[in-house]
Design a protein around this nucleic acid. Structure first.
Ligand code: FES
Ligand code: FES
Lengths: 143, 143
DNA sequence: AAAGAAATATGATTTAAATCATATGAAATA
DNA sequence: TATTTCATATGATTTAAATCATATTTCTTT
């Protein structure tokens, strides 16, 4: 479904948000340990997220990553997915036949379109906050 | 969504079925040309499909691949996807957190489950026949 | 039986994704 | 200002997916 990079990005974002929610800033090491991801790979991914202003990074002693509380409500999964994997999951043909569903549709175009729309709707309507609450209440896990 | 291998497998199956529907047997070359896929890679994929009895292969002069007409109705997309990519798309966690949705769910488990169920239902309820009719009537394309 | 046309089997190569490693830059604190 | 702790930048390596190449087997036709 998503690339591994994107999965790490989502899990990392949720973890950072969950900690920020409790006013805790986290380092790359913390993140990698808590979402079980390779540390330097995670660092690379976080740089992308920082550039796209999905996470906020602070250098130096006491630094790390955080997501300002106001943003935890605002950031949704679609933003993260697009930042990492681009919008191909929303736009490209499920059979790689074309640029999808125009004059030259593949045989699955209608069926795919509907599933992709559901996926898009889901990603768009799911903000970090609700996921964070689940994780912090111990209902769901990142590892 | 699917691996490239799986996309080729689906497109090849639809093409073979579309030709078998008109009592035409096709060679690997035909297939590769008509679905725009690398020839020897396609050959490999067809071997898998032949072993799983999704396509029928005939060696020697005049040989090639076909799908018996009775089977065009019976074969659905789920069978092809499972033959190539396995059932991970149905069963594995969208965030690669675990074996999905048991005692240890990831934060997206509910939302993912619903989308995956829709996908599974779609793949299961879509047989080759309806796709073939679309292609043969010129409503949709494999290339 | 021989020749040709097809699939089959297998292995090598290429490409892209994922991972690892290391040097550099910025902020804090002592 | 020196040192430490963190992120940043960059490049190398590994792994897996995709692609390419070729020898072998099977069947048909003559
Ligand atoms: S054309 Fe294939 S999914 Fe839209
Ligand atoms: S646990 Fe993650 S999708 Fe089921």
């Amino acid at each position: 479904m998503f690339s591994k990079t994107c999965e790490y990005a989502i899990r990392a974002s949720i973890f950072i948000a969950a900690q920020s929610y409790q006013d805790k800033r986290v380092t790359i090491k913390d993140i990698a340990e808590n979402i079980d991801s390779p540390k330097s790979f995670t660092a690379k991914i976080l740089q992308i997220l920082a550039k796209k202003e999905i996470v906020h990074s602070i250098k130096g002693i006491g630094g790390g990553f955080e997501i300002p509380k106001e943003n935890i409500k605002r950031i949704n999964l679609a933003q993260i997915v697009i930042a990492i994997d681009g919008d191909s999951i929303f736009k490209s043909c499920g059979l790689s036949v074309n640029h999808c569903c125009d004059q030259h549709p593949c045989p699955l175009n209608k069926k795919f379109k509907s599933i992709r729309n559901d996926l898009a709707k889901m990603l768009d309507s799911t903000c970090l906050e609700e996921l964070v609450l689940d994780v912090n209440s111990g209902e769901s896990f990142l590892i």
